[in-house]
Simulated assay, not measured.
Amino acid sequence: MLKHRTVDTKAGPLTVVVTGTGAVRAAGFTPEVSELVDLIHPRLREPIESADDVGPVIGHVKSYFDGDRSALDAVVVEQYSGGEYLRHAWQVMREIKPGAPVTYSEFARLSGRPAAIRAAATACSRNPVALFTPCHRVLRLDGSLGGYRWGLPVKRLLLDHEAAA
């Protein structure tokens, strides 16, 4: 059984879906858990119930927004795509440091496929655990924001928060 909880943040409501062991399977800046269900790979889907206790993840989120930019590094995520490149790209994405965003081209290079810029963008767009696998730290070549499932104002706020900390 998966559990979910929504917490208010500076970027708006953040809903997390976690396993019984506290690993995050889905997260997004929405109060609606239904918006997250389709982001979870079918092999990882289970019934989901609301819960006050979803493990330490909420504490890490609060620490992050209180200025501890490394607080999210301790959060375990469970992402599954069925494809080796996406799994690897998501792991690489977690290594992008707060306050040091990269371009899609740089992300493709870091992921081991420098010519695969579209694949790098796909890894960002299919990321089911926003904030914890920080796709918001990937920008267009000209430094503009590009896209973000949860809206460009949220992406801008997260980047500004990380730059200021």
Score class of each variant (00 low, 15 high):
residue 16 V to L: 10
residue 111 S to T: 07
residue 5 R to N: 05
residue 82 G to M: 10
residue 105 S to M: 08
residue 51 A to S: 12
residue 1 M to D: 02
residue 110 L to Q: 09
residue 25 R to M: 10
residue 73 D to I: 11
residue 33 V to C: 09
residue 103 T to G: 05
residue 46 E to T: 03
residue 97 K to I: 03
residue 8 D to A: 15
residue 132 F to Y: 04
residue 42 P to V: 13
residue 68 D to I: 00
residue 52 D to H: 11
residue 165 A to I: 02
residue 11 A to C: 15
residue 117 I to A: 07
residue 72 L to D: 03
residue 24 V to G: 01
residue 77 V to Q: 01
residue 118 R to G: 04
residue 57 V to R: 00
residue 17 V to W: 00
residue 124 C to D: 05
residue 155 K to P: 06
residue 102 V to C: 04
residue 56 P to T: 13
residue 86 L to E: 09
residue 14 L to E: 02
residue 77 V to Y: 03
residue 17 V to R: 00
residue 134 P to D: 12
residue 16 V to G: 02
residue 12 G to E: 11
residue 56 P to N: 12
residue 56 P to G: 12
residue 83 G to R: 14
residue 105 S to I: 09
residue 22 G to Y: 00
residue 115 A to R: 15
residue 99 G to T: 05
residue 51 A to F: 03
residue 129 V to M: 09
residue 54 V to D: 00
residue 144 S to I: 09
residue 116 A to Q: 13
residue 59 G to Q: 02
residue 61 V to L: 12
residue 146 G to H: 13
residue 78 E to T: 08
residue 19 T to N: 01
residue 70 S to G: 07
residue 19 T to Y: 01
residue 60 H to T: 09
residue 148 Y to M: 14
residue 155 K to R: 14
residue 37 V to M: 13
residue 14 L to I: 09
residue 155 K to Y: 10
residue 154 V to G: 05
residue 60 H to C: 15
residue 134 P to V: 14
residue 67 G to A: 09
residue 96 I to R: 08
residue 97 K to C: 01
residue 89 A to S: 02
residue 164 A to N: 10
residue 129 V to I: 13
residue 95 E to C: 12
residue 53 D to M: 04
residue 39 L to C: 10
residue 22 G to F: 01
residue 154 V to C: 08
residue 142 D to E: 14
residue 158 L to W: 13
residue 65 F to E: 02
residue 40 I to T: 01
residue 62 K to H: 13
residue 125 S to T: 12
residue 113 R to D: 08
residue 156 R to C: 08
residue 115 A to G: 10
residue 20 G to L: 00
residue 14 L to R: 04
residue 89 A to V: 01
residue 84 E to D: 08
residue 93 M to E: 06
residue 142 D to H: 13
residue 155 K to M: 15
residue 20 G to I: 05
residue 26 A to D: 02
residue 93 M to A: 14
residue 119 A to P: 02
residue 7 V to T: 14
residue 131 L to Q: 02
residue 45 R to H: 04
residue 39 L to G: 10
residue 132 F to K: 06
residue 63 S to W: 00
residue 20 G to A: 03
residue 15 T to R: 07
residue 102 V to P: 04
residue 81 S to V: 04
residue 121 A to F: 07
residue 42 P to A: 14
residue 117 I to R: 15
residue 38 D to A: 15
residue 165 A to Y: 11
residue 74 A to Y: 08
residue 59 G to N: 05
residue 52 D to S: 13
residue 9 T to C: 08
residue 108 A to K: 05
residue 49 E to T: 10
residue 38 D to R: 15
residue 129 V to N: 05
residue 77 V to L: 06
residue 55 G to Q: 06
